[in-house]
Design a binder for these strands. Structure first.
Lengths: 232, 232
DNA sequence: GAACGCCATCTTGCATGGAAGATGGCGCGC
DNA sequence: GCGCGCCATCTTCCATGCAAGATGGCGTTC
């Protein structure tokens, strides 16, 4: 018996549940379903061309992730985020990213070196985008940097949790993207994190990653409050 | 309109899905459904006295939390944990707890003081249990200490994520409880964390909480490996 | 005119039936 | 005796039907 080693969802046979899940998640992220939107599963099912069952199950998964709430016998509600929610979310992001940076720095040199190299390439792309005043490209590269940082820790659960919390905050990040002052410091701070990682300085990598995110958060939270929007 | 302020699940009308979810979770935690167990939803439904639908939806939630996997057209599998999984889980626990300790220490004194006081009471209970050689009571108090530490950060999402990861590792913790050397250092280390919290020393609280858990992990992981069990 | 209460309608919760697919045993061929 | 292939069985996936409950409008009453 060759055992085939699980082969990680070898046959991702298209399941309607997965399709509904992906479609709904995308719609929520892109605010095609705006926060505060409330609709019935029947309605969604009709729009997706399937029956209520797969929609219902997809909604359960989304509820588990905190993106929607299902109000018994009243419909599905797309969760809005209050400034308080954003504080919570960013605290978790800070915790996860700084932990990831520390984990990478604690790895043996042979493991952490390629990670640092890859991250430096992304950071260079950020600098280039900044020089070209290409804000979307900068944001994409910045997101990729942080994503790769977490992935570099080699902890699938950490990555999964991080993905969940980033999903929740996606809308707010998109909203504040164009409002923030030009993110000049990011590239330098990223470089600082990378230097600590290269040096294997675990505590310093943690502190730098933490400070980096906290500074960004300190810029964004007032912006959100200033926007006068209590719900995102 | 009085608005009623959501009243947090005012009518927790008993749902069969919730019942199935709770029963399954409990069964998995207590290893009534041993890791590696594989059964059909029909079978579980019969045992719980309900139809397949609520079981199916409960299983989806459990899968989302990583406790089970549903193999398409083959049944529900209770996830076993490899030593590698345990490493991942403990890395996440370390990250969350140390972040929580830092968050508490960063709170204004009026907020963090009662938290520290409550934690000290629990720590005293641990010391008493240790003196009485009451290992179960010690474990209960220790678990409560860490739980309260995370709750003290005042971040519902952090608490939720923590609960999820603790659920995953519950079985392994129970398994190693009686195998560890007498946990003499715990009380001292807890006191150190609390001192840092009282002093508002954010970085120190983080470092101490991290070191505390890492030391415990360093004891447990070899034990699990030593037990010769590759799957828990 | 205002407020109460009833009822039609719409919602999810749950059960059940049919369909597609994977598994494992059994029989056949060599 | 050994190995291959077929088929019965079992499993989840999805659609649909029914029931309980919540909502909001409308009519009635004061």
């Amino acid at each position: 018996m060759v055992q085939m080693r699980d082969n990680a969802a070898a046959a991702p046979r298209p399941s309607l549940v997965d399709a509904a899940y992906a479609a709904l998640k995308r719609a929520i992220r892109d605010t095609a379903l705006a926060p505060g939107y409330q609709g019935s599963e029947q309605e969604i099912a009709l729009q997706l061309g399937m029956s209520r069952t797969p929609v219902h199950e997809a909604v359960i998964r989304l509820q588990e992730e905190g993106l929607v709430r299902v109000l018994p016998r009243r419909g599905v509600l797309v969760c809005a985020l209050s400034p308080e929610d954003m504080r919570e979310i960013y605290e978790v992001i800070v915790a996860l990213e700084s932990a990831a940076a520390a984990l990478i720095a604690a790895q043996p040199k042979k493991q952490r070196k390629p990670v640092a190299t890859a991250l430096e390439a992304v950071n260079a792309a950020m600098a280039a985008a900044l020089a070209a005043e290409d804000l979307p490209a900068w944001a994409e590269a910045d997101g990729r940097f942080h994503q790769m940082l977490v992935e570099g820790a080699g902890n699938a659960r950490l990555v999964r949790i991080y993905a969940g919390i980033m999903d929740q905050s996606h809308r707010a990040r998109m909203l504040t993207l164009r409002l923030r002052p030009r993110p000049i410091l990011s590239v330098q701070e990223h470089a600082g994190i990378l230097a600590a990682i290269r040096a294997g300085a675990e505590a310093e990598a943690l502190a730098r990653a933490k400070a980096h995110r906290q500074r960004a958060v300190a810029q964004i939270l007032p912006l959100l409050a200033q926007l006068g929007m209590r719900q995102i």
